[in-house]
């Protein structure tokens, strides 16, 4: 075997940016991540033209999944038009000729920073979540070799201790984003810093979810119809944010996750976090023909 049989003629850039070998490694790890839901799989995390910590893990998974007929949506805290989301989306379409969209219903591939869209995802859609810290045990065990052993032993008692201490100190569970959840009854994962509102959307869902941390070089997955159970005490039920009765001041949407916008007078206004859903609601109110898909939450209540 010679080097020339293993290489290809020079090209300025590979289709889908990552070289073939990088994609093969991602593919192998993504298959293993599906086979053991919620278990963190180490991977090499190649260089991409973006700083680590800005979504490089999600980007590598998305680049591996891209097809010529993909339609990509990228959101940053629910918004399609933030600089980070717009740059990633444009990069994806430039390196692969994939189509871009803001609409959850049109997308085949959704890369997201810290939100799950409010419209239900279908069985043909893949959600890629960017993860800053993939290790749910880090607050209780900073040594990652010991944390790995704790995952191997399913030794998660200290996570309940954290929740218990929050109850004792504050009278309620204070964990807001990245609420730890037990996947397939075996591995505890951090669902990335999505709000508590979004965690039930991963439980027994129709879509496939990948979670990938580029800086930490680990990825994990939640296949369709997989149990994702937030850690709770049997007498303290899991509670999502109290947003059921809030109204978006721009679109009039109700019963979706809201961004709180402080006002000069001291109060706050609320705005739908899923920005394109808000846009669709405004268009519909103006009489334009828009389709809003079925939602995870109806009238502020989660519908399984």
């Amino acid at each position: 075997m010679t080097l020339s049989t293993l290489t290809r003629p020079w090209a300025a850039i590979s289709w889908g940016f990552l070289d073939a070998s990088a994609k093969r490694e991602m593919r192998r790890k993504m298959i293993k991540a599906i086979a053991v839901p919620g278990c963190q799989m180490p991977y090499a995390s190649r260089e991409v033209p973006m700083a680590r910590g800005w979504g490089t893990g999600g980007l590598q998974v998305t680049l591996t999944l891209l097809r010529t007929d993909s339609v990509v949506k990228v959101i940053d805290q629910g918004a399609d038009d933030s600089v980070n989301a717009a740059s990633i989306r444009r990069f994806l379409s430039r390196v692969s000729a994939a189509a871009e969209t803001w609409d959850t219903l049109e997308a085949t591939l959704i890369q997201s920073r810290h939100r799950v869209p409010e419209e239900r995802l279908r069985e043909d859609q893949v959600l890629v979540l960017q993860v800053p810290n993939p290790e749910p045990l880090r607050p209780v065990q900073p040594n990652m070799s010991i944390a790995r052993q704790m995952h191997a032993d399913a030794d998660y008692g200290r996570l309940w201790l954290v929740l218990y201490e929050q109850m004792v100190r504050s009278g309620r569970i204070m964990q807001g984003a990245a609420y730890p959840a037990l996947v397939n009854g075996r591995h505890v994962m951090t669902p990335s810093p999505i709000p508590r509102w979004d965690v039930p959307k991963l439980h027994m869902a129709r879509h496939l979810t990948f979670l990938s941390a580029g800086r930490e070089k680990r990825l994990y997955a939640v296949p369709p119809f997989t149990r994702v159970e937030p850690l709770v005490f049997s007498d303290v039920p899991y509670k999502v944010e109290d947003h059921a009765d809030l109204v978006c001041h721009r679109s009039g949407l109700r019963g979706v996750f809201m961004n709180e916008i402080p006002q000069d007078g001291g109060g706050s206004a609320f705005e739908a976090s899923d920005s394109h859903l808000g846009i669709k609601a405004i268009r519909r109110a103006e009489g334009a023909a828009t389709t809003i898909g079925p939602m995870w939450y109806e009238e502020g209540r989660f519908r399984p």
């Binding site: 889908g16 073939a20 993504m30 298959i31």
Partner: peptide, 24 residues
Amino acid sequence: LPHPTPDDLRDTDAFEALMWAMAR
């Protein structure tokens, strides 16, 4: 714009099939 080679297309199709076969 970079163009996919026949190998790229075959590999992404094969992986897509394998990924969904494993996920479902």
